[in-house]
């Protein structure tokens, strides 16, 4: 099953809807709740990042009985220092974003922690591409 979504960079109140739909699709397929939760957390963090930093983009989830592979791609400003961005607590989010409950600097670390495989490619001016893979029945949600 392949699910595709366009993530808005304009209306931040919509951010998270794609993740919620993927979560429900996984539930319908009977995926273990622990695997559903870590997938949902990883994708939601990525979707929020895409909406607030990336200016929106495309999300695709490829789902079968063994795993889910989520690809998120935006054409935003990109990340200049990936090592810094991966540190817990580091954030470049604006005050407006913080007022919405985001910008704790936990996004990328949360994605990495919940994924079994995590790939990120980003550089200034080129946008950001994330690939998140979760294998089912491998480990507990963290």
């Amino acid at each position: 099953m392949i699910l595709r979504y366009e993530v808005s960079g304009e209306d931040l109140s919509l951010a998270g809807r794609a993740s919620a739909e993927v979560k429900r699709a996984m539930g319908r397929l009977g995926v273990e709740p622990a695997d559903v939760k870590r997938t949902a957390v990883a994708m939601y963090e990525a979707e929020i990042n895409m909406a607030i930093h990336g200016g929106g983009g495309l999300a695709e989830a490829e789902l079968n009985s063994e795993k889910i592979v989520i690809t998120m791609e935006d054409e935003g400003p990109g990340i200049s220092d990936l090592n810094l961005a991966m540190q817990e607590g580091y954030s470049t989010a604006s005050e407006r974003i913080r007022e919405m409950g985001f910008g704790a600097g936990m996004g990328l670390p949360n994605i990495k922690r919940n994924a079994d495989e995590f790939f990120i490619d980003s550089s200034p001016g080129k946008g950001t591409k994330l690939k998140i893979t979760v294998y089912f029945g491998k480990k507990e949600a963290v």
Partner: peptide, 10 residues
């Protein structure tokens, strides 16, 4: 109040 903190809840 920070949703990423909520998502670190186990």
């Amino acid at each position: 109040d920070l949703m990423s903190d909520v998502m670190a809840f186990v």
